[in-house]
Design a protein around this nucleic acid. Structure first.
Length: 424
RNA sequence: GUGAGCGUAGCUCAGCUGGUGGUAGCACCGGGUUGUGGCCUCGGAGGUCGCGGGUUCAAGUCCCGUCGCUCACCCCA
């Protein structure tokens, strides 16, 4: 038996990097006063087709959709915004607080062909802010994403764009279609995209197409007064917070619900997958899903992609050391050590020992491998007068101490023990 | 959905024009050190060479098929 294609186990040695990423993000979410929300991974299909857009790739060919036993169509969530908004509406969170700042961390599912940085089950840390349309919020949200990258020790460039609103985007669409009608020699994909979603031709990677698109109308020239002002204020906000960014008027997102501000955290170190995080504003989506008419903005970061970047830079975390390893010699010592281990665990220490009656040398080896800060050696000799040898694995210092003392000691005390104790 | 590359030990890989599967590295176990780790040294264990078929006296090696993985296109976190 093997895991499904595109589904991966995160095993010890890898999971520590994930924990580092999640802990870092959670800490920052907390500082930016976001609350966690946990939502199901399975939803009615309609939730996604309505929000993401019927003609998007995600909905057309990437969703894990299947009939429930009663026949209704269910879908494994391909993204996190729709379920969170559903929960926001269903639980009446708009009435609890005028502005809700939410984050969630968990798996998403898309039936794509796996490649570097792209899996069928992947994990996102995503945030949503509902009920506020001030452009400073857009800047604040991007600053938070920036802060996460910073604290993870990663670099990426922030690209921003505005997609306008339902007032001005149609004008741009018309101008773009006019332009495309006149263009010639477009690649097959662009010819197809012109029909399905014209905005996306701008994102084409064919150099031939790109040469022509230099002349293409820019969405930014078509923004209505409100959208233009909003975009300027967003840039201003980023400047105020000293978050560097690049305006990329060709940037298009894969989900239909975005309005006004969109942004991506882009890196060149992930092979073909360049985005480690992306998001944007989606005013109107909550209403569209049957909720109150409140604006919203959010973004998601890909945990796999962050982990990949950390590993590539040698910044991955591969183990969490333990506080204490107890090396017991002989059956009597082992029994005493076994009880002692449990007591110390109850006091908050992470403690391990060997139960296979192996040599001290071997047990020391295990302690080293477990990255134990200290080793307590309990032998028959010491046991006779209730003592043991406590060894600091880093400094190689060791002292004879009474076992009763060890029981009383806390982790921090173990550290200071060597600083204060003089007997050897 | 399309294309390319690759499947040999737990992992990373040698294996030339077919001639008995590697004293390879890492990891694992044991000894050198009868009570002291990370280094060194000696030894040990571990394999249906992805699977199926074909060519041949002989296939890890060549051919066909199949499954799997990887990367890329597309798209995206």
């Amino acid at each position: 038996m093997k895991a499904l294609k595109g589904f991966k186990d995160i095993i010890p040695g890898e999971v520590e990097t994930w924990q580092f990423i999640e802990q870092t993000a959670r800490s920052i979410f907390h500082r930016f006063t976001f609350s966690e929300i946990k939502v199901p991974v399975l939803e009615k299909t309609k939730l996604f087709t309505r929000s993401i857009g019927e003609t998007t790739d995600i909905v057309e060919k990437e969703m894990y959709t299947f009939p429930d036993r009663n026949g209704s169509s269910l879908t494994m969530r391909p993204e996190g915004t729709a379920p969170v908004l559903r929960a926001y509406i269903e639980n009446g969170l708009h009435a609890v607080k005028p502005v809700q700042k939410l984050y969630t961390i968990g798996p998403m599912f898309r039936h794509e062909r796996p490649q570097k940085g792209r899996l069928r089950q992947f994990h996102q840390m995503s945030v949503e802010v509902l009920g506020e349309d001030n452009p400073l919020l857009d800047a604040e949200v991007m600053a938070m994403a920036w802060q996460i990258m910073k604290e993870l020790g990663l670099t990426a460039s922030l690209e921003i764009n505005s997609l306008g609103c339902k007032e001005c985007r149609p004008d741009f669409n018309r101008a773009l279609l006019d332009f495309l009608d006149k263009a010639n020699g477009l690649c097959d994909d662009c010819v197809r995209r012109r029909e399905t979603n014209p905005l996306r031709v701008l994102d084409c990677k064919s150099s031939n197409c790109q040469e022509q698109y230099v002349q293409a109308p820019s969405i930014l020239d078509f923004l209505c007064g409100g959208c233009d002002e909003h975009f300027k204020a967003v840039k201003n906000g980023l400047d105020m917070l000293s978050v560097p960014y690049k305006v990329n008027s060709f940037m298009v997102r894969g989900l239909d619900y975005y309005t006004r501000t969109t942004f991506e955290l882009v890196t060149s170190d992930l092979g073909a997958q360049s985005a480690v995080g992306a998001g944007g504003r989606y005013d109107g989506l909550v209403k569209q899903l049957g909720g109150p008419d409140v604006p919203g903005i959010g973004f998601a970061m890909g945990v796999e992609r962050l982990a990949l970047l950390l590993d590539q830079l040698g910044k991955g975390v591969h183990s969490n050391g333990i506080d204490l390893f107890i090396a017991a010699l002989g059956p009597e010592a082992q029994k005493k050590a076994f009880v002692l281990m449990n007591v110390l665990r109850g006091k908050g220490l992470s403690v391990s020992m060997d139960l296979m009656d192996r040599s001290l040398k071997n047990q020391m080896k295990q302690a080293g491998k477990a990255e134990a800060s200290y080793v307590l050696i309990v032998g028959e000799q010491e046991l006779a007068n209730g003592e043991a040898v406590l060894r600091n694995m880093e400094t190689h210092d060791q002292h004879q101490i009474a076992i009763k003392e060890a029981v009383k000691m806390w982790h921090e005390d173990l550290a200071t023990f060597f600083a204060t104790e003089t007997t050897k």
